[in-house]
Design a protein around this nucleic acid. Structure first.
Lengths: 108, 108
DNA sequence: TCTATAATTCGACATGTATCGAAATGTAAT
DNA sequence: ATTACATTTCGATACATGTCGAATTATAGA
């Protein structure tokens, strides 16, 4: 297994780790299940809005969002007093494509 | 969030947890990156064969395969002295589809 | 500048996970 | 039945994760 593929595998394992916690997955879905046909996702939620959909302490929420951010799944940007979270459509594409059958070298 | 969707979310979180460990992800990929164009995956590897691609104790490997199996990602079947592992193509489809943009109720 | 609001970091604790070697189980061949 | 082989279960240990409340940082408004 090449170093490139191994590195990519480790990055993907990290993304799956971020999505393996029910609360983090719930947050991620909140930020993605939003699209209209033919349009890109553009859901934006500040941390406080996300807090209202999961029943945990603010500090715990903060940890989870940081984990999602560090895994490269969720973007965060300060706007005034708030921090706005969003998910890039490319992230969804990359995850989806990862599970499409891969071709072995030499196959037609 | 409906109970059905919540249950499904928890099942998916479990699958991602199984894939979040580099060794388990490596094993899963070994069982899936096999397809030829237009054909279903039909890779089968016994535990001993899988052992040769990851550098861990047999007992640890056994734990990891059990985790993949219990998450519904890998099938295991005894054949003689061996246990044969394989991945159903439907599993890949389900994972892939999970990240395709979802439509909100009422969207066209 | 002081206060209120939004969110994060810190410190502590309980629980969960990965790992190993040793012992046990299941199967096939002698 | 005994032995060899393939794999799993058990028991122990080290490390990672999820959680909270308290303290801290950052920003906006009075």
């Amino acid at each position: 297994m090449s170093n490139y593929r191994k590195d990519n595998m480790l990055r993907m394992a990290n993304k799956f780790k971020a999505l393996s916690n029910p609360i983090r997955l719930r947050l991620f879905l909140e930020l993605t299940q939003c699209c209209k046909v033919g349009e890109a996702c553009d859901v934006q939620r500040c941390v406080g809005e996300l807090a209202s959909i999961v029943d945990i302490a603010p500090s715990t929420l903060s940890h989870h969002l940081k984990a999602l951010n560090q895994a490269g799944l969720v973007n965060m940007e300060r706007v005034g007093k708030n921090r706005i979270c969003s998910v890039d459509v490319k992230v969804l594409d990359k995850l989806s494509d990862y599970f499409k059958p891969k071709l072995m070298k030499g196959n037609t």
